[in-house]
Structures are given as structure tokens and as C-alpha cells.
Design a protein around this nucleic acid. Structure first.
Lengths: 209, 209
DNA sequence: CGGAACTCGTGATCCGATTCACAAGCGGGG
DNA sequence: CCCCGCTTGTGAATCGGATCACGAGTTCCG
């Protein structure tokens, strides 16, 4: 489930706040979801709370962490060092959570061979080597849209099976590769869509949900 | 629907590729979805394709653009000029799509009063003025988690009704305010979760979907 | 002119996720 | 020791989106 990371954050907050035990209600409140959903989600983990009491925060953190595989570290390569790519390569939160950025890829000859914020930059041609050398598990695509599919192909050829795509592109990859797309313009457009629907007294297109 | 922006991109590509007409099959292929879904989505727009022929690309672009309110421009304020905030403020794609970044907010006294990539930086105290002066419609929160809720409160108080939140926080806001959360660490954790589930021969926690 | 091939629009169906509702277990107080 | 209030776990019901399937309209060719 996509909610597990949120639960984990809420639980960490509770732990640092000194709580040793908590209820599905509190957790739901903090995570912005329904209490029943929390209980059902946690029941899939095989976790057992105590009826009448609630959940043990420390134990639950342990269970959720294990389910998420937080113990593992998954080396990441960032492809494309534009504004966004540089911010991602530089982002300290990733390493802390087990996703160290071990290398970056860019076509710019002026960058290749340099290190940016401690991250070595390589040519796309060396992608396969980089993946092999650092045991890269996840590729982040922050290239311009035109280069995205090619980059994805290279990542897949190099054996990467997880891709986080910021390129505003629909990537086609083999079935065994998982892609998660984050498109900032789309997010803004959705917000704009709702803004438009709420405001106008004049006729808007038609109800859409 | 969240798929409209994707359709619009696909349609634009088709238009520049010289197609004057297209089918739901082609559009589905390009957008990475099911053909029936495309037809159903478009039918909500009141759009009418021609049976046996397909859709007129130009007309469809017009319809989708209108539904999304692409004609409107929604001024954006970016709150928090860390790595990510700076990348967002600097991102040219936003202005092109009708979301000009008219101002940035940061607590750093060294930045206040400066302009970063042409974007003026203000103190959080001036947020209400900034919103009023530029008719800001959307607030982007790229602050550290600890400052996110406060920032959200200020945005709401200033009259902003749409928030794009990068802060890894569950924000609580009034009902009439729409929040879309983008959490990069969560995305990576989900990828890591699936990686972990696919690999190990030893027993993983339990099947989760 | 007739029919074959194609494509849209949409009611019907399916399926998973969410929510509801409640029995079962636990702890504390009298 | 018993009862009462609290919280979990989970089957049942509900909901909404995705998919299927097919009727209907269009084009084109023979």
C-alpha cells in the first residue's frame, strides 16, 4: 500500500513525542485517513494490536519498517541535471531514508567527470557501468521529455527495474519494470481545473465528478 | 479527471506530427491507458467524435483545453527556497503552461528582498500582501516539514484555495481548500517496497496486493 | 446500391478498495 | 469476581472506477 510510508512518518512523530502506545483513531487522524482503513491496512501486515488498548508504537514502527524494507538501501542514479535533477541529486533526505544518490548522468560535456554536490557525473554511455558498479536499483529520470524514453531504455537495458519519472512522458517499458510518474505540470493543471470549476458563474464545460 | 492533461499532451504531439484526426485507440496507446477509458473520459466533456472516423485533433485539443481551463493563468507563489523550491521557482515549464511563479517566500533574511531567477523573494510576513497584489491562486509548499503547516495556514488565511505540497506532511486545511501532495521519499519507498518483494527467496512479511 | 470494415457512445458488468458494523478480547475499577 | 468501557479484527455491504460488449453511425469499395 501507498499509505505505509505515511503511517511510518506518523508513528515516528508519535514515538519522538513520547507515546509508547497509540490507537487506530489517533493514527488515522495524523495520517489523514479513516480509522477502519488503518486497522485493515495494519492487519495485512500480520501486526497485532491489543484490543482495548491499541498498538505498541515501537513494535508497529518495526513491523512497518520491515514491510517497507527500510533496512535495505537502494542506490539511485539521477539522469538529467537540469534544475530538478540537481535538486534531487542534492536532496539529503534521500540518503537518510536509504536511497543514496550514487551517481548522476548528463549529456553536458562540461559536467561529465565533475562531481556535483558530491555526486559524480557520467556520460549516458557509461550508464550500464555505473549501474553495475554501484548496484543501482532505481533510476530517476529528470531529463527533458525528448530524452526520457531513450534514458528509460538505457536504464532497462542496464538492468534497472524501478524508475521514477519526472519527465512528463508516458514511458513504455517491459512488464517487469515498475514506473512511477510524477508530473508537476499535471498537478498544477489539476488544481487549475478545480479552481476554474469552483469560480465561474458563467457556464463551465460540464460536471466531471 | 487526472488524465486530461495527459490526453492534451498526446493530442499536441499528434497535432505537431501532422495528424488532423485520430482514434481512441491511438490516443489510448499514446497516453498509456485503455481505449474504452479514453472514450468514456472524452464523452464526459460533451465532446463528440465521429463514429467510423474518430476524433478531430484540433477540435479535441480545443475541448480539452477549455475543460482544463488552459486559457486561464493562475499565478503561483513558491514557499521555501531550498533545493527543491529553487528548482521549482526556476522551472520554465510552469509559466509556459499558465502557472507563472510571481513570487517566492523564505525565512532566510539573506534572500528576502533579492530576486532569484527573476522571482522576488519575500518574508513570510508579507505573504498576505503578495497574494493580494498578484492575485495568487496556488501556493506551493517546499518548506521543511516543520514549517509546512504554518505556511499552509498563512496561505489559507491569505485566501489561497489550492496548495501543492512537497513537504512530506499531512496538512490540515478547511474543506474548501484543495491540497495535492507530492512526496518524493514516499515514491521511492514504494519502489523500494516492490523491489524487496520481488527479490527475496526468503520469506517476506506477507502479501500486500 | 449493398455490404464490409471501422469507430464512437454507453448501458451492463466486474472488481478492488473503502466503509460499515459488530463480535471478541482486554484492562481497570468497584 | 464481575461488569463496563474501550479498541481491535474482520465479515458484509457499499461505492466508484475500469472494463466489456454491443448497438449505431460513417466511410468506402465493388
Amino acid at each position: 500500500m501507498a499509505r505505509l510510508p505515511v503511517y511510518l512518518r506518523s508513528l515516528s512523530e508519535l514515538a519522538t513525542a513520547g507515546s509508547s502506545t497509540t490507537s487506530s483513531d489517533v493514527l488515522a487522524e495524523r495520517s489523514g485517513v479513516n480509522a477502519a482503513k488503518v486497522r485493515k491496512d495494519l492487519s495485512y501486515l500480520g501486526t497485532h494490536g491489543t484490543r482495548g488498548v491499541g498498538y505498541d508504537v515501537r513494535h508497529l514502527i518495526f513491523e512497518v519498517s520491515r514491510a517497507l524494507g527500510v533496512a535495505n538501501t537502494w542506490p539511485v542514479v539521477v539522469c538529467g541535471l537540469g534544475n530538478l535533477g540537481r535538486a534531487l541529486a542534492n536532496h539529503t533526505g534521500f540518503t537518510e531514508r536509504g536511497f543514496p544518490v550514487v551517481a548522476a548522468i548528463d549529456v553536458n560535456p562540461a559536467l561529465i567527470g565533475m562531481t556535483v554536490d558530491g555526486v559524480p557525473v557520467h556520460s549516458p554511455d557509461r550508464l550500464a557501468d555505473v549501474v553495475a558498479d554501484h548496484d543501482v536499483a532505481i533510476g530517476v529520470i529528470a531529463t527533458p521529455p525528448g530524452a526520457a524514453q531513450d534514458t528509460a531504455d538505457r536504464l532497462v537495458a542496464a538492468g534497472v527495474r524501478s524508475i521514477l519519472d519526472f519527465s512528463s512522458t508516458v514511458l513504455s517499458v517491459p512488464d517487469h519494470v515498475e514506473v512511477r510518474a510524477v508530473d508537476l505540470s499535471t498537478e498544477l493543471q489539476i488544481l487549475g481545473f478545480h479552481l476554474q470549476r469552483d469560480l465561474p458563474a458563467d457556464r463551465s464545460p460540464r460536471s466531471l465528478a
